[in-house]
Simulated scan of single mutants.
Amino acid sequence: MTDNRLAGRTAFVTGASSGLGVRFAHLLSGAGAKVALAARRTDRLDSVVDAIRQGGGEAVAVPLDVSDPAAIGPALDQAQGALGPISILINNAGLSGDGAALSLPVETWDQTFDVNVRGVFLTAREAVKRMLDSGVAEAGDARIVNIASVAGLVQLPGLTGYCASKAAVISLTKGLAREWAKRHIAVNAIAPGYIETEINADWFASEGGKAQISGFPRRRLMDGDALDEALMLLCGRSARFMTGSVIVIDDGQAL
């Protein structure tokens, strides 16, 4: 049975060149949405766009570094020009920002917050301006989904900067949801636990990574499809009654 629950909608996905961003783009397209894939690595974006088009979907690649404030608005305009008014924003771009506090370079701290927090804020703000201007918000179709992490709820060793940035994303999600509630814009977040992706595959294949997995209550990483249903919920019709929510999906890893 064909899934057309997002037919006629346009989604903008940041960090769409690898990992969860690629999966989200395919998932949204499979539900009928037109998808703008945004990231710095445009060579990778092109291959994802080609795959979506070969599957019958409509997609475009948009070069974007969310740490560059001047680039965000034009990127959204480029996406809208190609696909129509954006009604779904997936704020997925992020950096790991790992390092012990005493030795963490200030540049790494700043870069982590530039991407993980400021990038989320500015992309959401610019997207909402366009959702208001296009009438998408008034129609009740405006959806913003921020990808946070269980790291924003618990402290992970050697990841103080990353944890702080994801805690900020959770707070930001609730703040924007409150501020934009009367404008009928749904702002929610997903806080996932560890899913094996390109960014962490080498670590979890190491002895240290295997030891970390053995410490999880279920002694496993989550499957790649773990966030699918939550994403569809927050992008779809049901989210008209949800805003400021943070859905934790971590297989009990934070217990």
Rank of each mutant, 00 (worst) to 15 (best):
Leu64Ser: 00
Val60Cys: 10
Cys163Gly: 04
Asp225Ile: 00
Glu207Arg: 07
Gly56Arg: 02
Arg183Trp: 01
Met131Glu: 00
Ala168Cys: 08
Glu58Met: 12
Ile147Met: 14
Leu159Cys: 13
Ala82Trp: 15
Asn91Cys: 05
Ile249Lys: 11
Ala168His: 06
Leu28His: 14
Leu89Phe: 07
Gln54Asn: 14
Gly97Met: 04
Gly94Thr: 09
His184Tyr: 12
Glu58Thr: 14
Pro63Met: 04
Asn188Cys: 06
Asn4Arg: 14
Gly161Asn: 13
Ser165Leu: 09
Leu227Asn: 06
Thr2Cys: 03
Ser214Thr: 05
Ala79Trp: 10
Pro69Leu: 03
Val106Tyr: 15
Ala226Leu: 07
Ala11Asn: 03
Arg220Val: 03
Ala82Met: 10
Ala39Leu: 05
Thr108Ser: 11
Leu132Lys: 13
Gly175Pro: 00
Phe113Thr: 00
Gly236Thr: 07
Arg5Glu: 15
Arg53Ser: 10
Leu89Thr: 00
Gly8Lys: 05
Ser134Ala: 01
Ile213Ala: 12
Met242Gly: 11
Ala36Leu: 11
Met1Pro: 15
Ala79Lys: 07
Ile249Thr: 07
Ala38Arg: 01
Thr108Asn: 12
Ile199Thr: 11
Arg183Lys: 15
Asp77Leu: 00
Ile213Phe: 01
Thr197Ile: 13
Leu20Pro: 00
His184Gly: 08
Asp68Met: 10
Asn91Lys: 04
Ala137Lys: 04
Gly135Lys: 09
Gly135Pro: 10
Arg41Cys: 13
Phe113Val: 02
Ser96Asp: 13
Asn91Ile: 01
Met1Asn: 13
Ala7Ile: 04
Asp43Leu: 08
Val187Glu: 12
Ile86Arg: 02
Val115Arg: 06
Thr112Phe: 10
Ala93Thr: 04
Asp110Trp: 06
Gln212Arg: 15
Ala25Lys: 08
Gly97Arg: 03
Val115Gly: 07
Tyr162Ser: 00
Ser245Met: 11
Ala230Asn: 13
Leu159Ile: 04
Leu83Gly: 00
Asn91Glu: 05
Asp141Arg: 15
Arg183His: 11
Ala39Trp: 10
Asn116Arg: 09
Arg5Tyr: 05
Arg240Thr: 15
Ser87Ile: 01
Asn200Trp: 03
Ala93Lys: 03
Pro192Tyr: 03
Ala82Val: 01
Leu89Ser: 00
Ala79Asn: 04
Arg9His: 15
Lys174Ser: 11
Asp251Ser: 11
Ser87Lys: 02
Arg220Lys: 13
Ser238Met: 10
Gly252Val: 07
Leu6Asp: 06
Gly158Leu: 09
Val248Trp: 14
Gly119Trp: 05
Ser29Thr: 08
Ala177Thr: 11
Asn4Met: 12
Ser87Ala: 08
Val106His: 12
Ala124Leu: 09
Ala75Lys: 03
Asp43Cys: 09
Leu104Tyr: 08
Ala191Ile: 09
Asp77Phe: 00
Phe12Ile: 00
Cys235Arg: 03
Asp46Leu: 12
Val22Asp: 10
Thr2Gly: 05
Gly215His: 06
Ala211Lys: 14
Pro105Asn: 02
Asp114Pro: 02
Leu20Thr: 07
Asp98Pro: 06
Gln212Ala: 15
Ser67Trp: 06
Asp225Ala: 11
Val60Trp: 12
Leu156Ser: 05
Met131Arg: 01
Ala205Met: 10
Ala186Leu: 05
Ser171Thr: 14
Ile90Leu: 10
Asp202Lys: 15
Arg130Trp: 01
Gly208Ser: 13
Glu198Lys: 07
Gln155Asp: 12
Trp203Gly: 01
Gln111Leu: 11
Ile170Ser: 14
Met232Asn: 10
Ile86Glu: 02
